[in-house]
């Protein structure tokens, strides 16, 4: 089309070629708001963060920071905060797995067993979002308080001993200010992000495929693992990503439900930025976290191989 227009500009075809070009431009106009949004709220902050990560660490918010390509920030930040990074990945990983198990059962029940209660149950899943994240987490602080009934019940049932045994709580029979509380908080707060994509993907599973697997000698359990579960993999992948990524960067749960010994990398970044004003270390640590998460996600998505299901 375009070459014809170039060869014969006076050609009556020209008018015909102009119309589609106008339409092409419409496409670009439609992209514009989104592109601007991304530029202002993603690209610029990202560059700002990247620049901060390369600041001369000798600066301060008062004396100013200079960007000196100080790549050593990354080494220093990683070296100093590898404990928190490892803890974040561990806590977020356990929370994501717990969410997956709990969320899968729930999503499965809603998709296949809820019948006319389906919509109500979906509303209940997102109901926690009606109150603020902070308030919900704070109320867990009340629920798990040392003198509260949850702790005394857990003690009576020797659950605290069990948790102590696997190292999720400290040795003095409490729940709050322990890794358990932080992981429980993460699990609770991010569960809906797991359930909704799982539900969306289970809902799409053709019930006839499950019948077919039964017809082909698969018991319900084997049918689940051979048919239902593989078909819900896109939801599993989406759900685990939506849970793991924010959980790994979260600092509210560790702040409110944890102790000084359960700080996550988000707490360190927040502390570096706001209290210490160490923009260089804060920027470097943020970039490190981002790189680790992006790498992990790429590896994970490649391994899970969801593109084959599309």
């Amino acid at each position: 089309m375009t070459s014809t227009a170039g060869v014969a500009p006076a050609n009556p075809h020209e008018t015909a070629t102009k119309a589609p070009r106008g339409r092409k431009l419409t496409g670009y106009w439609l992209i514009l708001p989104g592109a601007l949004w991304l530029l202002v709220f993603f690209v610029i902050p990202f560059y700002s963060l990247l620049a901060a990560s390369l600041f001369d660490p000798k600066g301060s918010p008062l004396t100013g920071y200079d960007m000196t390509w100080h790549f050593g920030n990354f080494v220093d930040a990683f070296d100093q905060y590898k404990g928190q990074i490892g803890r974040s990945i561990l806590y977020a990983g356990i929370a994501t797995l717990t969410c997956l198990v709990v969320g899968y059962v729930l999503a499965y029940a809603i998709a296949f067993k809820a019948g006319r209660w389906k919509n109500l149950m979906l509303v209940l899943v997102i109901a926690p979002f009606f109150t603020s994240f902070l308030l919900r987490t704070l109320s867990w602080k009340l629920i798990l308080a040392d003198d509260g009934w949850v702790v005394s019940a857990a003690q009576t049932l020797h659950l605290t001993n069990l948790l102590n045994l696997i190292g999720l709580t400290s040795t003095d029979d409490r729940l709050l200010a322990t890794p358990f509380a932080v992981i429980a908080g993460l699990t609770y707060n991010f569960l809906p992000f797991m359930v909704l994509p799982l539900y969306a993907s289970l809902e799409k599973v053709d019930i006839r495929l499950i019948e077919a697997s039964g017809d082909l000698y698969a018991s319900p359990i084997r049918g689940f693992f051979k048919v239902t579960f593989p078909l819900s993999l896109p939801g599993v992948v989406a759900g685990t990503l939506l849970t793991f990524i924010p959980a790994a960067g979260d600092y509210v749960n560790a702040q409110l439900l944890g102790s000084p010994n359960t700080r996550m990398v988000g707490n360190s970044i927040q502390n570096l930025f706001t209290s210490q004003g160490d923009y260089a270390a804060a920027g470097a640590l943020s970039v490190i976290l981002m790189v680790i998460i992006v790498a992990a996600v790429m590896l994970y998505v490649r391994t899970a191989g969801t593109e084959e299901l599309v």
């Binding site: 053709d206 006839r208 495929l209 019948e211 077919a212 697997s213 048919v227 593989p230 078909l231 993999l233 084959e308 299901l309």
Partner: peptide
């Protein structure tokens, strides 16, 4: 009827 082949 619709074959119900396993798409994965």
């Amino acid at each position: 009827q619709n074959y119900a082949l396993f798409p994965h």
